[in-house]
């Protein structure tokens, strides 16, 4: 690709078509298909061994699929890496010891065909103030943002982050996501693999849940919660405990003294039935299913 780069030339930023990858007897990714449009912020969710890292490695051309096809901005992944269309922050990717922050970002800057200015990448990552610090003397959060700067300096269409906030403290995580949201707001595609579900709720427009090398759910965070359904209905009631399980929608009942907790597939239906009934309940609260609960239920279903 020469001269000016055509942005968003391909309909899909990421296109995985029936890809499979095995390591010996282990089938890491099985017949996985995934299309990501430009500008989407996608969280890739799954337990360890669900196939997330292998999927990421295929997008970066580090491993080739055994069958199926992976395309990044319409190109072969290795080519997309060469052209700086996709850049990534890998899990635990190390830094070159003994160099300064700006030097390291400058090194990456020179490797790409149409990079951002180093100062801009440092600014995006919130590292301007520590530009002349040695990379081995950064805090965990700063080091992680440096990895982001090394990727973002490519000015890529797609940034891939593999468990970016692992081993960060609360403040480090908050600072990291602040930088990430600012970047996503510029219209770039962001794909991140994570275990932390609160991050997904706040930072992803779309959630792809993987289990055993397959996609088992794909939608907005609200849709994923909705797929598992309803949530919980809590109230106080000192009579008629035997009748709760029979209420419409109820999938589980917990009673502690007079506090009752109903798990339900459809909170509306359950609450209507409660209201129409004669039981002396009071102090009613409805909570939607958390993403944590949805994720656990989805992955349990799949196993």
């Amino acid at each position: 690709m020469s001269g000016t780069r055509v942005r968003r030339s391909a309909a899909s930023a990421i296109s995985l078509r029936s890809v499979s990858k095995g390591y010996g007897p282990v089938r890491a990714v099985r017949d996985l298909s995934l299309e990501v449009r430009p500008g989407e912020t996608v969280a890739l969710l799954g337990h360890n061994g669900a196939g997330k890292s292998t999927t990421v490695a295929m997008l970066l051309g580090l491993v080739g699929p055994d069958t199926g096809r992976a395309l990044v901005c319409g190109h072969d992944p290795a080519r997309a890496v060469q052209d700086g269309l996709i850049a990534a922050m890998l899990q635990d990717a190390g830094m070159m010891p003994g160099v300064r922050v700006a030097e390291l970002v400058g090194l990456a800057h020179r490797a790409y065909p149409s990079p951002l200015p180093v100062a801009r990448a440092l600014e995006l990552a919130g590292l301007t103030e520590v530009a002349s610090r040695r990379v081995d003397r950064l805090s965990g959060g700063q080091a992680q943002r440096l990895r982001f700067a090394v990727a973002v300096v490519a000015d890529p269409e797609i940034v891939v982050l593999d468990e970016p906030t692992r081993a960060l403290d609360v403040r480090g995580r908050a600072e990291f996501w602040e930088a990430m949201r600012a970047y996503a707001a510029s219209g770039r595609t962001l794909l991140f693999a994570t275990h932390y579900l609160d991050e997904v709720d706040e930072n992803a427009g779309r959630v792809v849940v993987m289990a055993k090398g397959r996609v088992i759910a794909d939608g907005t965070p609200a849709e994923i919660r909705g797929r598992v359904g309803g949530g919980t209905v809590r109230f106080s009631c000192d009579a008629g405990h035997g009748a709760f399980a029979a209420l419409p929608g109820v999938t589980g009942v917990e009673v502690r003294g007079e506090r009752v907790l109903l798990r339900t597939a459809d909170a509306d239906v359950t609450v209507r039935a409660l209201a129409a009934g004669v039981l002396p309940w009071r102090d009613l609260r409805v909570t939607p299913a958390s993403l944590d609960e949805s994720f656990l239920m989805l992955t349990e279903e799949a196993s």
């Binding site: 890496v81 052209d83 850049a87 890998l90 990717a93 190390g94 830094m95 070159m96 490797a111 090394v150």
Partner: peptide
Amino acid sequence: VPWAQERQSGWLRQLQITPL
């Protein structure tokens, strides 16, 4: 030694996903 460190620290892997 620098080479062994870069391999272990994962810096080499980071380099592998650049156009170098």
